[in-house]
Design a protein around this nucleic acid. Structure first.
Length: 471
DNA sequence: CCTGGAGTTGTCCTA
DNA sequence: TTAGGACAACTCCAG
């Protein structure tokens, strides 16, 4: 049988993998290939946390392939050149991959496809990542959406279940002559000091992804709509890194949710699917407005008076030493674990862009480097939204009060307590705004900042004034 | 082309 | 204590 390269990227799974499936169905013996090429990702080469996850996910994929008699061929270099080398060495007659949508990699892939096809080589790309391709959703006027709700209605109205395919039980062997590198040699493993126990909670790879979905459906799904905003609980799906690396297909997530649907779970399931459609919306926007990974979606903000990024203030934010407990808790959780609860992401993002008035890209870059689930589409949408420059119609008045938010969503200050332990001796009520009790703070938490790096009232007013001045 | 309703996640003041 | 309205005006999107 003729061979075909199957080029793995952010689709690190064997079940529901359309490229792999297409290769097999067309009668090819698949040769799984992985090429880490961070230099081809422009300004958005994966960060350290993302690499730590990828390292483990690749090992899991490699293991799963081995079990089935196959093997992952890993090579470094330029993607285009490595693929050509492998085609020559293996005698492969076709190349399959699942699409990526980032502004840097999309044109790269298009160029590779065009060049190989021009030589009469068979190349096929598939969709392993999205429920709906970005170009398949249009407004009545024929353009892309910029507002979530109509996008959501459109997607939900046109959503069709996709057939599920289990991972093949066995795969053809890859010829020994085809050499590759060990995954350990790629330098992806973390140099950070990860919080102990992190890899007990998170299991990168396809098996871990399926387990995470089962755990979610059996547990946090019930009450998701009400509980997901509470950072102290495990009330979210924990699926974001799995989805980012393509360890599970979003349509399988939906299929399993639908299979579990009961009257009691009805609104929770709808609420979660709505979140999945946000992910679709992020890819829709990134595809149609690729410049927005760097530039404001709303050009009205191009002249906005951001504060220059003071290194001391930016670093205080990054290290969780702003003096605002909920902000510091979130930033420390991020630094130590590579994740941050969604609600807290909004709080720290609002604090950076509104109270400190620093450019949303400062936050986006830090998140990019530190999040294990860093995803260019989601990251861009999130930061443009919280910065007020993106797809949000009436953002100017939305300045989160970090004290109010903490009181509302972390009422026992347990989340704060876990990540800012030096406040533990303070009474719970004092932990939300400790600077208001300077004597207690001085005596019981001497190592914590006396004052926030910005006055919350003045910061809010300055932000509102600056936003009122645009346009 | 025009019309009208609506826009993820908030805050603060007032009654 | 709590509920409701103000907070710009604009753009998006469907009809």
């Amino acid at each position: 049988m003729p061979a075909a390269l199957v080029w793995f990227r952010n689709d690190l799974r064997l079940a529901d993998n359309p490229a792999l499936q297409a290769a097999l169905e067309t009668g090819f013996e698949p040769i799984p290939v992985y090429i880490p090429a961070p230099h081809e990702e422009g300004k958005w080469a994966p960060g350290a946390a993302s690499n730590a996850w990828r390292h483990r996910s690749l090992k899991a994929l490699s293991h799963d392939l081995h079990q089935r008699g196959s093997r992952l061929v890993v090579r470094q270099g330029d993607s285009s050149q490595v693929l050509r080398d492998l085609i020559v060495e293996s005698g492969a007659q076709a190349l399959f991959w699942n699409r990526k949508y980032e502004p840097a990699t999309q044109p790269r892939d298009a160029a590779i496809k065009q060049a190989l096809r021009a030589q009469g080589f068979e190349v096929r790309s598939c969709n392993a990542t999205l429920l709906v391709e970005p170009w398949d959703v249009q407004t009545k006027a024929g353009g892309p959406y910029k507002v979530f709700t109509p996008f959501y209605r459109n997607v939900m109205a046109s959503l069709r279940a996709r057939a599920l395919y289990d991972a093949p039980t066995s795969l053809p062997a890859v010829p020994d002559a085809l050499k590759g590198e060990g995954i350990e040699m790629l330098g992806l493993a973390p140099r950070l000091t990860w919080d102990r126990g992190f890899w007990d909670t998170w299991t990168p790879g396809e098996t871990g992804a399926h387990e995470a979905l089962d755990v979610f459906i059996d547990g946090a799904l019930r009450g998701y709509l009400d509980q997901r905003d509470l950072p102290d609980r495990v009330a979210t799906s924990m699926l974001s890194p799995h989805l980012h690396f393509g360890e599970i297909a979003p349509w399988r997530v939906i299929a399993q949710l639908e299979g579990a649907r009961t009257a009691k779970l009805d609104t929770d399931i709808d609420g979660f699917i709505r979140q999945l459609v946000w992910r679709e919306f992020a890819y829709h926007l990134m595809h149609h407005f690729p410049q927005t990974v760097e530039e404001n979606l709303n050009p009205r903000f191009d002249g906005f008076a951001w504060e220059p990024a003071t290194p001391s203030k930016l670093q205080a934010w990054q290290r969780g030493m702003t003096g605002v407990p909920i902000v510091d808790a979130g930033m420390r959780e991020l630094w130590h674990t590579g994740v941050m609860h969604n609600r807290v992401r909004m709080i720290v993002g609002s604090f950076l862009t509104k109270h400190l008035r620093m450019h949303w890209l400062e936050g986006a870059r830090w998140f990019w480097d530190t999040l294990v689930d860093a995803d260019l589409a989601n990251n861009t949408l999130g930061w443009q939204w919280i910065g007020g420059t993106g797809a949000d119609a009436a953002p100017y008045f939305r300045v989160f009060n970090p004290v109010t938010q903490a009181q509302k969503f972390d009422p026992q200050a347990r989340y704060i307590g876990r990540w800012v332990p030096e406040l533990e001796a303070l009474p719970v009520k004092v932990r939300f705004a400790p600077w208001e009790s300077p004597e207690l703070l001085r005596q019981l938490a001497p190592s914590y900042p006396r004052q926030p790096i910005v006055d919350l009232v003045q910061g809010r007013q300055a932000a509102l004034a600056a936003y009122a001045g645009t346009g």
